[in-house]
Design a binder for these strands. Structure first.
Length: 300
DNA sequence: AATTTGCCCAACCGCGAAAGT
DNA sequence: GACTTTCGCGGTTGGGCAAAT
């Protein structure tokens, strides 16, 4: 049995939100937190359905949202992730802190699709476009009516996971430049992955952080790989200042995370024992913050 | 200046999954 | 196990705005 439409009830408002409504919703959620959305409009004094409230909050009012167009780097991430995940916008959005699925979906449909087509790439298959599939002559309405290819079926979920494993096995340079990050990394058992550092083949264990700052991390049990890893970073990011790097066995303490990811840093190498790098424990790590505020952390 | 066309994006709709009874 | 309720997701719509005609 299908669900009753939640907004058909008489007296419920639809359409654009007013500043007054926004204020009420923000005030309510900041005071009470996110609870049962069904109850929110009643408790907050809004003539909206719960669904509308949830959408407004998650897509527009949430304080951790980023504003403005996606950066080039974020676009690249979206393209890479879309090639792996298809139209799973919420999954894609989960890899882009501060961005919503709706925002990414809109950006994909209005910007990225066009860019890829211009480059001769089919935005759905991510392969070279064929002449017959060109639809540049279609109007907005025509394009809307031509349905998008479906998201990968459920059977493909395993393949997607496998694809992620493949990505983890690429070298660090690819990881950083491709911007692949995932909260799902922990799903992969430590023994299943290889050292991301191209010059080493020792086994690693993985860790991750719930912080948006930390996009991906991997820990190598082989200390020798650290120097190689650092050298890769130096080669790949010559524009960064790498003070005293590769001194003292390749690892130099350069900075510490001072609190729960509140500190701002461009680059650090840490071998500080007893540091408060949260789930990194006492493991040494290298951190790099790129221009777009994306951060990358590698265990050593 | 008026009209048309295209772009952008916030918001809506309907479905399926998960949770609850 | 069947049914209901709630939530989250992806697809789609529609209105405001700007550029083109």
């Amino acid at each position: 049995m299908g669900r009753q439409p939640c907004c058909d009830k008489i007296g419920l408002k639809k359409g654009p939100w007013t500043a007054e409504e926004d204020k009420k919703l923000i005030s309510f959620i900041l005071t009470n937190g996110q609870c049962c959305w069904r109850a929110v409009p009643k408790l907050a004094g809004l003539l909206r359905c719960g669904k509308s409230c949830r959408l407004r909050w998650t897509n527009y009012l949430r304080p951790d949202l980023k504003r403005g167009l996606l950066s080039e780097y974020e676009e690249k991430m979206v393209i890479d992730l879309h090639s792996q995940l298809g139209n799973r916008w919420s999954k894609i959005a989960s890899h882009l802190p501060g961005r919503t699925d709706n925002e990414i979906k809109n950006h994909w449909n209005t910007h990225i699709k066009k860019k890829l087509k211009k480059m001769g790439i089919d935005p759905q298959t991510h392969k070279s476009i064929s002449q017959t599939s060109d639809d540049t002559h279609l109007t907005d309405k025509d394009k809307r009516q031509s349905s998008q290819p479906p998201s990968p079926p459920k059977e493909l979920k395993k393949e997607v996971t496998a694809a992620k494993t493949d990505i983890i096995e690429t070298n660090i340079t690819d990881l950083i430049m491709d911007g692949f990050c995932t909260e799902e990394v922990p799903l992969i058992e430590p023994h299943e992955i290889l050292v991301p550092c191209a010059s080493s083949s020792s086994t690693t264990s993985t860790s991750y952080s719930s912080s948006s700052s930390y996009s991906y991390s991997s820990f190598s049990s082989n200390p020798e790989s650290a120097a190689n890893l650092l050298q890769d970073l130096v080669n790949e990011f010559p524009e960064f200042e790498w003070p005293n790097i590769c001194e003292e066995n390749g690892i130099v303490e350069e900075g510490l995370l001072e609190d729960d990811f509140g500190s701002s840093w461009d680059f650090m190498v840490n071998n500080y024992e007893g540091g408060n790098a949260n789930n990194f424990g006492n493991d040494p790590f290298v951190g790099l913050e790129l221009e777009n505020s994306q951060s990358w952390v590698y265990g050593l």
